[in-house]
């Protein structure tokens, strides 16, 4: 577990899994002697929020120390958005290019190659769809919800739209994006003929499993922190509206 007084350098050296989190908070390396709190303050990151995310990321049995409802929804949404960027611009392209190199140098039949390449193409499309739906409708709705809930008199138009259960639908249809990816790893490990370039194959499998883990964590954030917060805000607003 990491805490606010730990030198950031030590935290990252000991838990290199934290590395992909840093850019999501816009934190850069070169920490010097600064501790976690100082680095967060310097980068205008809420230290408690960073600690909760980092510790939950490191240990799936970690129990939040801070009341998660205290964090402004805006910082949660900002974190989720930069995580999406990471998936789209770093994680997926990295895997894609390794897979295509792996297929090029392999003895796989045309059919087997098509299977893997087609799978990844379509997976990427579905992933993009999911993320753009989230960014175009769900996240703006949530930010608006927070804004309206701070007003004395929320817009009546917005209040009417509350009846639409936007967030419940979102939580229900929450795609199981990671299950599908695990199928690809199984296909490689169990069913396809072995690849000549084991090292590259190893990298692909490792990248896939890192991404799956990250996606599970991401979905966990959305389901356990964001959705309950949003439901709470929706209920508050509805009560206020009905009372007024």
């Amino acid at each position: 577990m990491i805490h606010r007084n730990l030198p950031m350098c030590q935290a990252v050296l000991k838990h290199h899994q934290l590395l992909p989190l840093l850019p999501r908070f816009n934190i850069k390396l070169g920490f010097g002697e600064k501790n976690v709190e100082e680095v967060c303050r310097l980068n205008r990151v809420n230290t408690d929020f960073f600690l909760e995310i980092a510790n939950a990321y490191l240990d799936e049995d970690y129990i939040p120390q801070t009341d998660l409802s205290l964090f402004p929804i805006g910082s949660v949404v900002a974190y989720l958005t930069s995580t999406h960027d990471y998936y789209l611009h770093i994680a997926l392209p990295k895997i894609e290019s390794k897979i295509s190199r792996l297929l090029e140098g392999s003895n796989l039949s045309e059919k087997e190659r098509g299977l893997v390449a087609g799978f990844f193409d379509d997976y990427k499309k579905e992933f993009l769809d999911h993320i753009s739906r989230e960014e175009d409708s769900v996240l703006p709705y949530i930010l608006e919800l927070e804004k309206q809930s701070m007003k004395e008199e929320p817009d009546s138009g917005f209040l009417r739209s509350l009846q639409n259960d936007t967030i419940k639908e979102f939580a229900q249809e929450h795609d199981r994006l990671e299950n599908s990816l695990e199928n690809l790893s199984k296909l490689i490990i169990k069913y396809l003929p072995p690849f000549e370039d084991f090292d590259l194959c190893h990298q692909v499998l490792t990248d896939l499993s890192d991404l799956v883990r990250d996606l599970v964590d991401h979905a966990h954030m959305e389901d356990k922190i964001l959705v309950p917060r949003v439901i709470e805000l929706e209920q508050q607003l509805t009560r206020k509206f009905n009372a007024g």
Partner: peptide
Amino acid sequence: LGIKSVSGLTVYAIVNNIITI
């Protein structure tokens, strides 16, 4: 399953022994 595409379903079918490659 949360899988929409035919290619995704095909890989699902293979790893769940519904079909062979």
